[in-house]
Amino acid sequence: MRIEVDISCQRLTLYTPEGRRQDQWPVSTAKNGPGEGHGSGCTPRGRHVIRARIGDGQAVGTVFVGRRPTGEICDEALFRAQPERDWILTRILWLSGLEPGKNRLGDVDTMRRYIYIHGCPDAFPMGKPLSAGCIRMRNHAVIALFEQVSVGTEVLIKE
């Protein structure tokens, strides 16, 4: 399997090993646009790999902080009580860059920037760049993706 994230279309596509489109979902990438610098709040471009799969078996809406479940489930009441919180929900696919100097090592290292593909509250719109750098998906979509990929799956993020 292979993942392609198109920042300009705000779309994530999952391809089979033979190159056929398996699934496709709308996403939300960075509000600050594409970019690789640490602290930029941008979505990094280029070739990546899934470094870790986090959240297998957790309930839909499970809240993660520091890649650990907090014991909370994000519902409408919790979301309304903390609307500015950086919500990372349900599943996490932690990305690592494959291109030294572009998205790996030093000040541009995707993994050290904690860039994920992850779930988010249903109130967050898809198809618009609004994240702090990560790739947000609907919770049921991120579960469907999570179940089809493994550590080592390649991810291409392009404009």
Rank of each mutant, 00 (worst) to 15 (best):
I3F: 05
E4V: 12
E4S: 15
I7T: 09
C9L: 15
Q10I: 01
R11V: 09
T13C: 09
Y15L: 13
T16H: 05
P17S: 14
R20F: 01
R21I: 08
Q22I: 11
D23H: 02
Q24Y: 03
Q24M: 11
Q24E: 10
V27F: 02
S28K: 00
S28L: 04
S28G: 04
T29Y: 06
K31R: 12
N32T: 03
P34G: 15
G35K: 04
T43H: 09
R45D: 12
R45W: 05
G55Y: 03
G57A: 03
Q58G: 10
T62L: 04
F64L: 01
V65K: 01
R68I: 15
P69A: 08
G71R: 04
L78T: 10
F79N: 09
R80D: 13
R80N: 12
P83F: 04
R85A: 06
D86R: 11
W87M: 04
L89D: 00
T90S: 10
S96E: 15
L98N: 13
G101I: 06
G101F: 15
R104T: 14
V108Y: 04
V108I: 10
V108A: 07
D109I: 14
T110Y: 01
R112L: 09
R112T: 14
I115V: 11
Y116M: 02
P121N: 01
P121G: 09
P121C: 06
F124G: 10
F124T: 13
P125T: 03
M126Q: 08
M126N: 00
L130T: 07
L130E: 05
L130W: 04
C134M: 07
R138C: 13
H140K: 13
V142T: 12
V142I: 14
I143A: 05
A144W: 02
V149Y: 08
S150E: 13
T153L: 10
E154R: 14
E154A: 13
V155T: 08
L156W: 08
E159T: 05
E159L: 10
